[in-house]
Design a protein around this nucleic acid. Structure first.
Length: 490
RNA sequence: GGCGCUAUCGUCUAGGGGUUAGGACGGGUGGUUCUCAGCCAUCAAACCGGGGUUCGAAUCCCCGUAGCGCUACCA
């Protein structure tokens, strides 16, 4: 009988939920759901300097947006809480005390600043910057006496000799020589645990079965395994997922652009698309199928199919994937999302947003051209402005087209007659005019497009006319014709 | 510097002793068409290098190289 699957996502609340963290959380979530296990959220806020309440909220927000619901966590409780490390200090202290008594850890009275200076000097000389165990040479009595005197000190783990090896579920067997590992600090002078120590105590106390985390933790793993051993605990299964890199192949960071999931949300990306895209960064089902809902992912996810290679964040593919999901949404939903986006960004005044029917018509007209709400105005802005400012390049095209003025005027005339003013009759009228003039429909349509929208790329022309309505269409056509015939004063 | 990990089209990847090395994004071309998008068709594009093992290596092993990560009283 194997232990139940219990996995955790354990971010430190020092910023926002970034895409790398989100991907790690996703893999943990999927693994838990796939195996009927438990997904735990634990906040690693032992670094008091950098941890903030806002960051905790941002993590919740990002996780919820992605649909990564946790079974145990700070806001939710569970049998193994509390789920803030800052509330578990007594546990770490007790574990550290045990190690101290058993002489698997020792007090270190060295000055952190001096240590730092020594480390930097060693690095400058290209030597390994290891702690020299000065304080380990203290006698038991001396160490205890100095502590009793109230001398500030940290607690260091005594790294045993030998080697540490584990069977990583994504990388296979990984081995480290303990000699390359430091006597790491487990309890700081302020009695707060360090990451490696707190993680071990908590993962064990919370009965974590599998630790799935970023590749950047791989060299922490032998340290943690040694701590498990010293504590007489059984280590969990470890799996190190490759990192997500920026386009230049280095670790994804701010300078690569948006890195927090909420930024993507605010830019109009859909959580379904984000999840699907993230899942494909370092994991593949069969290399063929690419579109998966969260639910579908939970049915097919497996650790064996996690790639060993770091993955470069391909923004283009995210855009494409968002388009796939966005286009599949019902019109009303797309209109909701567009409205929401326009409100949030102030892209259109509230007054323009009040006419829901008109907004829906515009969204329908833009149709498949939108990959996300932010694309809306590039295609439909013309329908929401009173005074059209044609793009210079478009206007130049119109000017270059001989006879355009005449066609626009005639089209305006024709449009005054169309009855009823609907898509098909308008199309008939426009095509009829072209036939009458003996030109291809495009010869009427392209000038009209520029005159009506100021752009060369727009929704279908009949939708454009419909969206503007008869009066505005006729007025814009006539105005353009006038401007064409009387060269605009500079 | 030390330690560790990794290495298939530009990118994400499938494959894994014998394949025309497959798919997706992006790019090219053609079609549909009022532009664009979409859709359809189609093309170009890869096994890091060197040694082994083997009848046969992109696939297994070793070395090299490169990239990345870690090397904190950060996580």
């Amino acid at each position: 009988m194997t232990a139940p699957v219990r996995v955790r996502f354990a971010p430190s609340p020092t910023g926002y939920l970034h895409v790398g963290g989100a991907r790690t959380a996703l893999f943990n979530f999927l693994f838990a759901r796939r195996h009927g296990g438990v997904f735990i959220l634990r906040i690693e806020d032992t670094d008091r300097e950098r941890s903030t309440k806002e960051a905790v909220d941002a993590i919740f927000e990002g996780m919820r947006w992605l649909g990564l619901t946790w079974d145990e966590g700070p806001d939710k409780g569970g049998d193994f809480g509390p789920y803030f490390q800052s509330q578990r200090l007594a546990l770490y202290a007790a574990a550290a005390e045990r190690l101290l008594v058993e002489e698997k850890a020792y007090r270190c009275f060295c000055d952190p600043e001096a240590l730092k200076a020594r480390r930097e000097a060693a690095l400058a000389r290209s030597e390994p910057p290891k702690y020299d165990r000065t304080c380990h040479r203290l006698t038991r009595e001396e160490s205890a006496a100095r502590a009793a005197r109230g001398e500030p000190h940290a607690l260091r783990f005594f790294m045993p000799e030998g080697m540490t090896t584990w069977d990583d579920s994504v990388r296979g067997t990984v081995t480290f020589q303990n000699a390359t590992l430091d006597d790491l600090v487990i309890l700081r002078t302020d009695k707060h645990p360090t990451y490696n120590f707190a993680a071990v105590v908590d993962d064990s106390a919370m009965r974590i079965s599998h630790v799935l985390r970023g590749d950047d933790h791989i060299s922490n793993t032998p340290r943690q395994i040694q701590i498990y051993k010293a504590l007489g605990l059984e280590p969990p299964v470890f799996g190190h997922v490759p990192m997500i890199l920026g386009p230049d192949g280095t670790r994804l960071s701010k300078r690569h652009g948006a890195t927090s999931v909420t930024e993507y949300r605010d830019a109009g990306f859909l959580p379904e698309a984000m999840v699907n895209f993230l899942a494909l960064l370092g994991w593949a089902y069969d290399g063929e199928r690419e579109i998966f809902t969260l639910k579908e992912l939970t049915d097919v996810f497996s650790l064996e199919r996690i790639s060993k290679n770091p993955a470069i964040f391909n923004h283009e593919k995210l855009e494409w994937m968002n388009g796939e999901y966005f286009r599949a949404l019902p019109l009303a939903t797309r209109a909701d999302l567009v409205a929401e986006h326009l409100r949030a960004t102030g892209g259109l005044p509230e007054s323009a947003l009040r006419d829901r029917a008109q907004l829906e018509r515009a969204v329908a007209a833009v149709g498949e051209r939108m990959r996300r709400p932010a694309d809306f105005l590039t295609y439909a802005a013309f329908a929401f402005v009173d005074q059209l400012e044609p793009e210079p390049a478009a206007w130049a095209d119109l000017v270059a087209k001989t006879g355009a003025g005449e066609r626009l005027r005639k089209l305006a005339q024709v449009l005054t007659q169309v009855q009823p003013f609907e898509h098909d009759p308008i199309e008939q009228a426009v095509r009829g005019l072209a036939a009458e003039l003996g030109v291809k429909a495009g010869e009427v349509i392209m000038p009209a497009r520029i005159a009506l929208t100021g752009k060369k790329v727009t929704p279908g022309i009949f939708d454009v006319i419909l969206l503007l309505g008869r009066d505005r269409s006729v007025a814009r056509l006539r105005r353009a014709a006038e401007r064409l015939e009387s060269p605009a004063p500079a």
